[in-house]
């Protein structure tokens, strides 16, 4: 690790002050410390958010406000989350390991960086790590890479699970920064690579995630299906989050989000439009998959993700509509 200074913010205001002075935030450190060991991240100053007063889960009208420093373990253990937003608990519990979830935080999880192997290997060309150097993954080992939302510059996925559930649940990311407070719908938080893959999300310099707000519970059937190379402690190859309500044998409402399929957590309203108002059938699910994947592009080793996503979607919808409450 390169040398750095470490400060401890005693309040949110103090954290913002340090960030404004150019410090990088550290929460659990489970991604940042890893990146610093490999000298992919080389901050000169860190500010610890541990005591910055962002560690609570609180009722917010009919919704819930999850502080940025709430650990993934505490969020998944929260009885309100388990009862009213089970999709979020399920997605978190499908991620990482118990040890990591005890440190990983809500804000840090949203900002975790890709797991593209070339991004982690400083001897390789990578536009995300070193803008303008090229993209070794395009012609390389790209089995875990995205098939939707890619650009010439970068084909890496956002690898996390929690944000996929939050996308289906229509969460809002609350921030504070030099230009005041913002409420960012999670669908707008992560940025596809375009020609600036170094930037993963819309956070501005000095801007701090303070909390994530979940809207009122939908009461729908909620399932998180994660397909991966081993049964646990592995990132997703493809994941599907669904929140769905049936009415008289038809799909009355449905929100669908996909992980590790696109460069960002992926939601496509056109897919939901195919499903809403219809009776579940394999033909319907296949049609939804066709709409989802019409622009999908594989890069060789990740071609399998396209049929895999279609099957994962069908299997998830099958489960959700068969156990569906009216």
């Amino acid at each position: 690790m390169r040398p750095f200074a470490l400060d401890h913010a005693a309040s949110t205001a103090e954290a913002l002050q340090f960030l404004d002075d150019g410090a990088t935030a550290i929460a659990g450190g489970t991604n940042l410390v890893d990146l610093m060991k490999l000298q992919i991240a080389t901050p000169e100053r860190l500010v610890s958010l541990r005591r910055s007063g962002l560690g609570d889960i609180a009722q917010d009208g009919e919704g819930l406000r999850i502080g940025a420093l709430v650990t993934n373990a505490d969020c998944a253990a929260d009885m309100q989350v388990r009862e009213n937003w089970p999709l979020l608990a399920k997605a978190i519990l499908a991620g990482a390991s118990p040890q990591l979830r005890n440190r990983a935080t809500t804000g840090g999880n949203l900002c975790q960086r890709t797991r593209c192997g070339y991004f982690y290997d400083t001897s390789q060309a990578c536009n995300k790590r070193d803008p303008g150097s090229g993209c070794a993954a395009r012609e390389g080992f790209n089995r875990i890479h995205a098939v939707l939302g890619t650009s010439d510059a970068c084909i890496a996925t956002y690898p996390g699970d929690m944000a996929v559930a939050m996308l289906a649940l229509e969460a809002v990311v609350l921030t504070q920064g030099p230009s005041g407070e913002r409420e960012i719908p999670i669908a707008q938080f992560h940025l596809p690579p375009g020609d600036d893959p170094a930037r993963d999300n819309v956070l501005e310099a000095g801007e701090l995630i303070t909390a994530v707000r979940l809207p009122a519970p939908t009461g729908g059937v909620q399932i998180y299906r994660k397909v991966r190379d081993r049964a646990s402690y592995a990132f997703a190859l493809v994941s599907v989050a669904v929140d769905l309500t049936m009415n008289e044998g038809r799909i009355a409402r449905c929100a669908l989000a996909f992980g590790s399929l696109g460069t960002v957590p992926w939601r496509d309203p056109a897919v939901e439009q195919v499903l809403i108002g219809e009776a579940p059938s394999s033909a319907l699910f296949a049609k939804a998959a066709e709409v989802l994947l019409k622009d999908a592009q594989g890069f060789g080793a990740n071609d399998f993700k396209i049929p895999l996503a279609a099957r994962a979607l069908a299997a998830t919808l099958n489960d959700a509509t068969r156990t569906g409450k009216a």
Partner: peptide, 20 residues
């Protein structure tokens, strides 16, 4: 893996100074 405040964590990814 060690226990911090009774919870298991990976000590390799945690900066010691964050454990005041």
């Amino acid at each position: 893996t060690v226990l911090v405040e009774g919870r298991r964590i990976n000590s390799c990814l945690s900066l010691a100074q964050l454990h005041d």
